[in-house]
Design a protein around this nucleic acid. Structure first.
Lengths: 137, 137
DNA sequence: TATTGTTATACTCTATAACTATA
DNA sequence: TATAGTTATAGAGTATAACAATA
């Protein structure tokens, strides 16, 4: 007996809550979109075309991760890339028409996934949880 | 403008907090052990030999995931497996001597990783956060 | 037969390191 | 030198299907 109880450690509980949330998100979204893919799509929807590395910073993905996510979204026809004429290092990423339509029909379900995840909590508790989590980023 | 702000949605913030926690965990642990591997090791340390599927339930992993984690821990020499003589379907998993030593020297750092992750919060806030998160599992 | 557990396969996300190209 | 992007490698999580053993 070590006294080390998994459920008392934030890392383990974070993983469990993430498992539940991803399950709800997957079930509710109308297209087979993952949470990181959705973060990229909504960032492009709100901010227009951005360089791939900047997209990664805004959506909390490092270079290798955002590359894979963008590649899969390009293969799906949701985003497109083009070199930045004013900076040869940058690759501009933007939504296609199909990607814009995907975002439009996914906004409601994405909000519903957040609501379903937080369903066990009161509105005040949800605000407290978000405030505390944001201080740990 | 959609009004959909990533930082207001629990899934996105959970992903960011998990990123930070895993970074701290990786930096502090003395061996290259991941959080799921640690969950398996501490479960075996506290509970002794258990069937692989039961280990998965206790450490929050499904059958396919726990198989991969156990395989990597066997390759590392930290755990061993043997058929259960009383139930031919089950594969008993247990710590090796080397695995027990690994757990012994990792307990302090694992606690330090939790402490470092929660460092921005007061003790009362930490209890609140854990309570709220546990209600979302 | 129905249930439980294990195995195999495939896809996605994450991170690090090494490398190339451009500013 | 610093930044952007690509590639390779590794581990983890998830889902599905197929298989074996037991009740």
């Amino acid at each position: 007996m070590t006294g080390y109880v998994l459920g008392d450690h934030v890392g383990f509980v974070l993983r469990q809550v993430t498992q539940r949330h991803v399950g709800l998100f997957t079930a509710l979204m109308p297209d087979p979109i993952t949470p990181p893919q959705w973060a990229a799509l909504i960032t492009l929807h709100n901010g227009g075309a951005v360089a791939q590395a900047q997209l990664g910073r805004l959506a909390a993905m490092d270079g290798a991760t955002v590359k894979g996510v963008v590649d899969r979204l390009v293969a799906r026809g949701a985003v497109q890339t083009e070199p930045d004429a004013s900076d040869g290092r940058q690759l501009l990423v933007s939504l296609t028409q199909s990607g814009s339509e995907l975002v439009a029909r996914s906004l409601g379900p994405a909000i519903a996934a957040t609501e379903a995840t937080l369903a066990p909590l009161t509105p005040a508790e949800r605000r407290t949880l978000l405030d505390l989590l944001r201080r740990l980023t």
